[in-house]
Design a protein around this nucleic acid. Structure first.
Length: 606
RNA sequence: GGAGGCGUGGUGUAGCUGGUCUAACAUACGUGCCUGUCACGCACGAGAUCGCGGGUUCGAAUCCCGUCGCCUCCGCCA
């Protein structure tokens, strides 16, 4: 670029710059060659501006413009000019002006890209990931990265202004038995031993509270070796927060302030606080989900009492065996075709329900396969309980409570989306509180901590000595999730800081003092030296930014994401390593595993 | 671990109830023409054997089996 220095970004030019000399640096987005007149759309991260070269103008600039191709890197010297009347382009942010080139330097040529660098027309994601650096040239992707940067800055500034210190904690740490599968890092100095990449800074942030740090936060990279989803990557970023001498209300107030600041400063949207709250039990009962989407109604209604004595065997038996008969009312869907109802039933069965019962409130006629079994009073009872009106469809499921409401909850979401009942452009934040403290592991049948083993129970729930399974299931935790439009954004709890309470919880988990010591010894040690009451929360930053950007996958707000098989298509990670590296670590790869991975990764071989 | 979807010139798609498919369309690419375009236009040209392997068949992009990759969901993971 020689002695040239950029004076303006492409997207910044406006009529205010008319008449002034500008120096631009950027990529050729498109060029239109009319023989004696050439237009070049020059692009940088701020936007695109039109550069004009005429054969009657600078000869050298014109000759260079002739040779230009898409994605060439140029320096353009010229005069910004208001476009002639009728020549403006209202579809372009800089469409009122253009730059008459007096000098063009080709700073670098470029091969024809493997896919067009355009805002719209998305290429196959495999290609986009392989050539991520080209994909990221697209303005919408740059907007996402910019949004993410701004969000991080707002968060840092907000938390700092509230007295929080950003402190880094180890990424290489000790493997703990709880939670997700660990990514392991072999130790060279102690062959056979391993570090684990941190799943979260959980234990360290609690130790910092013991240290008297009082208020800590970190934008922390976390690693979990579990299967991926549209909103899950093997490495992701948490906004991790912990503070001392707090209760739930103080955490809620802090977080609401942070989210308000984010929405205002990044999106220009004013949010109402405090956010609504709902207990876990109520969320499950009303929405069949612990992360309800409250942007639309169609809540679940329990109609067990209405039909428990009916002549319909399924309802009667379910009620008698302690199950539930529950229903949702789908507005305006009485006209659903037989086929549509069948596919709903199929979906319900796939989710584990026995089936569905429908009641259609057509004009002047109520249609249902179970009408003949139900009394007038029972039919009226159902209509009243569900609030069904003419034109509505009532969907009923019967069975064990947990399963039944969760199936109805899914059906509710499916139908809400399919029938367009979910309003766009709304941000329904919701606190879900008091999750169960314990949950049964599906495979082993053992009781485990639902959140993590240092979560404080609601004290009144663990008074007394009744530790039956039923009593265990009823113990509530002082935990909370922040939900936005049905997506879980954050999760946290008030922690246990007293030894007697911790021991009680360990015993509920079936952990002997010796086992507890072996697993969490260093934390328990620390807690004996004066741990303050404390609590915190952790946000999924990627999901947060995804919601703000209106993206449908977390990958669109991560610069270099991995595929569903946790591979990086750009660098071809994971890759094999040299035999020598393994030997140094005292590691040998089992034959059967190596064979499989060898066949899968032939591209890695060179 | 399971279920489903997709894989065709550089890119995006059509074809896929087997045979004029000797693979079509758009766009990008190359050459030429054009002084007001902004998805510039026009003309000409080059470019894929249909992810890979096997099978059925006289004949396979098309049917079957296997396999690889990408995506979505369940399990898993907060």
């Amino acid at each position: 670029m020689g002695d040239l220095r950029r004076t303006k970004y492409c997207g910044e030019l406006s009529v205010k710059d008319a008449g002034s000399r500008v120096v631009l640096m950027g990529w050729v987005n498109r060029h239109r060659d009319f023989g004696d007149l050439i237009f070049i759309d020059l692009r940088d991260r701020t936007g695109i501006v039109q550069v004009v070269c005429e054969s009657g103008g600078s000869r050298e600039a014109f000759e260079r413009a002739k040779r230009v191709k898409p994605e060439y890197v140029l320096a353009v010297v010229g005069t910004c000019q208001k476009r002639a009347p009728g020549k403006e382009n209202p579809n372009m942010a800089t469409g009122e002006v253009e730059v008459i080139a007096s000098e063009i330097r080709i700073l670098n040529a470029a091969k024809t890209p493997p896919f067009p660098i355009r805002d719209e027309a998305e290429a196959d994601e495999t290609l986009r990931l392989k050539y991520r650096y080209l994909d990221l040239r697209r303005l919408p992707m740059q907007r996402n990265l910019e949004l993410r940067h701004k969000a991080s800055m707002v968060i840092r500034n907000y938390l700092s202004s509230r007295g929080f210190w950003e402190i880094e904690t180890p990424m290489m740490t000790r493997s703990t038995p709880e939670g997700a599968r660990d990514y392991l890092v072999p130790s060279r100095l102690e062959p056979g031993k391993f570090y684990a990449l941190a799943q979260s800074p959980q234990l360290f942030k609690q130790l910092l509270m013991v240290s008297g740090i009082d208020r800590y936060f970190q934008l922390a990279r976390c690693f979990r070796d579990e299967d991926l989803r549209a909103d899950r990557q093997p490495e992701f970023t948490q906004i991790d927060i912990e503070m001392s001498f707090v209760d739930e209300e103080m955490i809620f107030e802090l977080v609401e302030g942070m989210v308000r600041a984010l929405w205002k400063e990044v999106l220009g949207v004013e949010l109402a606080t405090p956010f609504p709250r709902i207990t876990y039990r109520e969320a499950i009962a009303r929405y069949g989900s612990d992360k309800p989407d409250t942007r639309f109604g169609m809540e679940i209604r329990d109609i067990t009492d209405v039909v428990k004595n009916s002549n319909f065997g399924v309802f009667r038996d379910t009620a008698a065996s302690g199950g539930t008969v529950s229903a949702i009312c789908v507005p305006g869907y009485a006209k659903a075709t037989r086929h549509e109802l069948d596919s709903l039933s199929l979906r319900a069965k796939a989710l584990g329900a026995k089936g569905l019962v429908f009641i259609s409130y057509l004009s002047g006629e109520v249609r249902s396969a179970v009408k003949k079994y139900l009394s007038e009073a029972e039919m009226t009872g159902i209509k009243d309980a569900t609030g069904a009106k003419e034109g509505d469809l009532v969907v009923i499921a019967a069975g064990p409570i947990d399963l039944t409401v969760s199936v109805l909850g899914r059906i509710r979401l499916d139908l809400g989306a399919r029938l367009g009942l979910i309003p766009e452009g709304r941000y329904n934040f919701l606190w879900v509180t008091q999750f169960p403290l314990l949950a049964r592991n599906q495979e082993t049948g053992e009781w485990e901590a639902a959140h993590h083993p240092f979560t404080s129970p609601v004290l009144e729930d663990i008074e007394g000595q009744d530790f039956s399974d039923e009593a265990k299931a009823r113990i509530r935790a002082r935990s909370y999730d922040l939900v936005l439009n049905g997506v879980e954004l954050a999760s946290g709890s008030i922690r246990i800081h007293r030894r007697d309470l911790q021991e009680k919880v360990f015993s509920l988990l079936g952990l002997s003092p010796e086992e507890a010591r072996e697993k969490f010894g260093f934390l328990l040690d620390a807690f004996e030296y004066g741990a303050p009451p404390h609590g915190g929360i952790a946000f999924g930053l990627d999901r947060f930014v995804m919601m703000m950007a209106g993206a449908s996958t977390i990958r669109d707000v991560i610069a270099f994401p991995k595929t569903a098989r946790a591979a990086c298509l750009l660098t071809d990670a994971p890759s094999r390593v040299r035999e020598e590296q393994l030997r140094e670590l005292g590691i040998s790869v089992t034959k059967d595993k190596a064979l499989v991975s060898g066949e899968n990764s032939d591209q890695n071989d060179r």
